[in-house]
Design a protein around this nucleic acid. Sequence first.
DNA 1: ATAACTGCAAAACATTTGCATACAG
DNA 2: CTGTATGCAAATGTTTTGCAGTTAT
Lengths: 158, 158
Amino acid sequence: MTLPQAQLDEVRTRFAEFLKTRGQRQTSERFAILDALYASGEHLDADALFARLKKNGVSVSRATVYNTLDLLIECDLVVKHQFGKTQARYERSFAYWQHDHLLCIDCGEIFEFCDPRIQSIQETVAEIYGFEIAQHALNMYGHCRRENCDNKPQTAEA
Amino acid sequence: MTLPQAQLDEVRTRFAEFLKTRGQRQTSERFAILDALYASGEHLDADALFARLKKNGVSVSRATVYNTLDLLIECDLVVKHQFGKTQARYERSFAYWQHDHLLCIDCGEIFEFCDPRIQSIQETVAEIYGFEIAQHALNMYGHCRRENCDNKPQTAEA
DNA sequence: ATAACTGCAAAACATTTGCATACAG
DNA sequence: CTGTATGCAAATGTTTTGCAGTTAT
């Protein structure tokens, strides 16, 4: 769940260089947001991330959270997901396997999976439609069989 | 694009019976919304649907549009999609092949495709994770090669 | 008749924007 | 210093809700 320190450092370095290249500032808020998202390893929405930061004594505004998430997406350190709710969820993407998502309709739990056939499908579709495909999102929705799957959608953050 | 009259009738009948079963009323607004969505065959968002109705001289409120869409989803006549934008899009689902979506990042055009391998993946995932999978959403995003793909996201409705 | 539905406007959310202040380079 | 970021609060866009009036059954 937690990334090795060496990789966390690499992530910070990458963000720092991205900012430098674009002539943007390296602020403590930006790194705090990066750290919070990478520390969790979960699929947090912007507000849960905001709440977690506040809980950890980091005071940032929601606007800065959204701003920074956009920057992190631009430098490929974070991916944004629309799992069917109106609010987006964000997930770290550095040094992590490419995967798709399996969501429990009852408890809201999110599982990750990877199947090589999705890649084949992507190639076939690109060929047939003359598309240059940049990315895909495959979400499966169903009922999990966990003991503690209790039909109560648990909030993203404790 | 347009469904044969016989199927449109079947759709209306199905909705009528669904409403009767639940002791809900058959109002002209509800059928107007059903018709408008089935007439288009597109992936409309709630507001585009609202606009189309108004253009056709049907006066309904946005609230009724949303309400009715929920009913149509419940009786499996309509499916709701989250294609990455905040606003949801709605598509008729009766007498239509099961398919996934290919979206052009530049012009916003939506294409449909179907690949049997997605079904295999679904079965594999269900098996591995002990899930009873109810549905899936596979969206591919890329650049189309159409002549009139002009980078300008065209609005859902003309 | 009467319970359900509609339209309207206000509320509820998620996200973005504008602007005065703060601060990294 | 200087321009970029931040926080705040207001604005935006989408969807939901409350309620008085309307209508299908």
